[in-house]
């Protein structure tokens, strides 16, 4: 029984780690219908910025955190302006944007490589070593923080998108790009804003994830990126609650496969679950089917 509880705890902890990133991914994906491969690299850059600011510039935690998030947000806007806007304005097929984001991902990764090297660096964490115990199972404070932060993100983003004007503009752009423009929405600004928020969230998740594992290196983006991408799609693109749900499902699939079947095929389980769900519900669990109009 204790073994089972331990797995449940691990799954929820892992799920919330994925959820942090998946929420941001889902939002960008929803508004732009763009598979953004550079999101994972932005995640990694955000995490590294915090490392650089706290270790090299010796800033205290909170200002470093805020600064990293802001800088990463602006980085996202810059990326969009330089690498994606020309493609969008010239009606290039979605493929071209995809490849462009791959190129951006390579650029960001290699810039960090040249600056920081490929070694794994230790990361400052909050509440090191402190945890609470549920019987024999221990839950670290950091894990609780992550669950709390994902919940906060989910709630605040959902409110923002539903209630604020900017959020409404984003939803309009997501629904119908051209119509939104016709209604006087500056689509360019909306997209920049989306990228800003998306990248800022990526930075937040990157920082917390690295705090959780107490290390950072240039590959964390890609190793987390794939699963969070899967989680986003599983839950339904554009649906923030779906992103969290998808993250939990994937985490549970992984952890329980690892614990009860075989540790080395845990990734396999995650993707198999993804495929099965999409077979049954081609628009993700909570996604709405897009009406194809002539």
């Amino acid at each position: 029984m204790q073994f089972f509880t331990q797995q449940v705890v691990s799954a929820i902890a892992l799920g919330s780690v994925y959820a942090l990133t998946a929420i941001g991914y889902s939002m960008v994906f929803g508004v732009l219908e763009l598979i953004n491969f550079s999101h994972a690299s932005v995640f990694m850059v955000g995490a590294f910025l915090y490392y650089i600011l706290t270790n090299i510039a010796a800033l205290p935690g909170l200002p470093a955190f805020l600064l990293s998030v802001l800088i990463t947000g602006f980085l996202g806007v810059a990326v969009e302006k330089i690498t994606l806007r020309p493609l969008r304005l010239n009606n290039q097929p979605k493929f071209a944007s995809l490849i462009s984001t791959i190129g951006t991902s390579i650029i960001l990764q290699n810039i960090m490589f040249l600056l920081m090297g490929s070694e794994t660096l230790p990361y400052q964490t909050l509440f090191p070593g402190q945890s609470i115990s549920l019987g024999e199972t221990r839950i670290s404070y950091m894990q609780i923080v992550i669950v709390a932060v994902s919940t906060m993100l989910l709630v605040s983003l959902s409110l923002f998108i539903k209630k604020s004007r900017a959020g409404m503009a984003m939803r309009a752009t997501a629904q119908n790009y051209d119509a939104a423009e016709l209604m006087g929405i500056s689509v360019d600004s909306v997209i920049s804003l989306t990228f800003f928020i998306g990248s800022a969230i990526a930075a937040i998740s990157g920082i917390f994830v690295c705090m959780n594992y107490q290390s950072v290196d240039i590959t964390i983006g890609t190793s987390f990126g794939l699963k969070t991408f899967a989680a986003t799609v599983l839950g339904g693109i554009g649906n923030l609650g779906g992103a969290v749900l998808g993250s939990l499902i994937i985490a549970f699939a992984e952890v329980f496969t690892a614990a009860y079947i075989n540790t080395s095929i845990r990734d396999l389980a995650a993707f198999v679950v993804l495929v099965i769900v999409l077979l049954v519900r081609p628009n993700g669990l909570l996604g709405k089917p897009v009406q194809k109009k002539v």
Binding site: S10, T222, S223, F256, A258
Partner: peptide, 21 residues
């Protein structure tokens, strides 16, 4: 004896709990 794949997420808790048993 338990294995894990490279590039996998850094979460080893299921693996460790199996070994602990």
């Amino acid at each position: 004896a338990e294995s894990f794949n490279e590039g996998q997420v850094s979460d080893f808790t299921p693996l460790l709990s199996k070994l602990k048993q």
